[in-house]
């Protein structure tokens, strides 16, 4: 009761102030919702960070990972992570990031092994998500590290303790958004409005490629 009265009074005070469009007055806690239990959190808290926070207890070797990978993953990703059809390539491409057609794989591009664990745990195998046990995921991550030559030994065991010590080749390859300095020329005081160009040439036509789906061949509408 007292809580209700307090909230109600708070709302009246907020109501008498000038109502701003950007901030809605929330007069302290409203007493809505309920506390989540440790069991409920444990069932849903599946994220893993680069420092290892969130890793469940467990372990798995490269060799164990290989057999799980062939059974559960290779249909889309290929036995060696080379990718089937348009499904993602997982290995190779080292040193290709400056190439005309870079191959952005775990080994060539991803910054942290925790990303693999986190992603596989929540989203893989595609169509049967959250079905793998912690040990199976450790083994799969170990195998993917092996495919990417981050670990060399098929006997290598990945576990909760050694996980955060594993580094991927491109871990230093990222920097925070710097557009406001590196692209500061796009903030312009004056733009040209009259006689800005003498000559205009068409350089490139989309039609030359002819890859646009036909409008007449449309999906079925109920």
């Amino acid at each position: 009761m007292s809580k209700f009265r307090k909230t109600f009074t708070g709302a009246l005070v907020a109501g008498s102030a000038v109502v701003s469009l950007v901030s809605v007055a929330v007069a302290g806690k409203l007493g809505l919702g309920r506390e989540a239990s440790p069991q409920e959190i444990a069932g849903w808290d599946i994220d893993v960070r680069p420092d290892g926070q969130g890793l469940p207890p467990g372990k798995g070797t490269v060799a164990q990972g290989e057999s799980i990978f062939i059974e559960q993953c290779a249909a889309c990703h290929g036995e060696f992570g080379q990718g089937v059809d348009r499904w993602p390539v997982l290995a190779g491409g080292l040193g290709s990031l400056t190439h005309d057609r870079p191959d952005k794989t775990i080994g060539s591009f991803w910054p942290a092994p925790s990303t693999i664990y986190d992603y596989v745990r929540r989203a893989m195998p595609y169509g049967n998500a959250q079905s793998l046990k912690p040990d199976e995921i450790y083994a799969l991550v170990a195998y993917l590290l092996y495919l990417n030559e981050v670990v060399k030994d098929t006997g290598f065991e990945l576990n909760q303790k050694n996980f955060a010590s594993i580094k991927l080749p491109n871990s230093g390859g990222f920097y925070d958004d710097d557009r406001e300095t590196s692209e500061k020329q796009f903030w312009q005081k004056d733009v040209c409005m009259k006689d800005c160009k003498v000559d205009v040439k068409v350089l490139n036509h989309a039609r030359m490629l002819d890859v646009t789906p036909d409008r007449k061949k449309s999906p079925k509408v109920e």
């Binding site: 994220d47 893993v48 960070r49 680069p50 420092d51 990031l97 400056t98 870079p102 952005k104 775990i106 591009f109 991803w110 910054p111 942290a112 925790s114 990303t115 986190d118 992603y119 989203a123 390859g173 990222f174 920097y175 925070d176 958004d177 710097d178 557009r179 796009f186």
Partner: peptide, 29 residues
Amino acid sequence: EPWLAREETSKYTDLMADGRSRRFTFIMD
């Protein structure tokens, strides 16, 4: 700290010509 999830590392990062990548490019210009 950020989690470095797949969709903010492997995807939705912007690979530059020098081989390095911008991350956390959240704002739409």
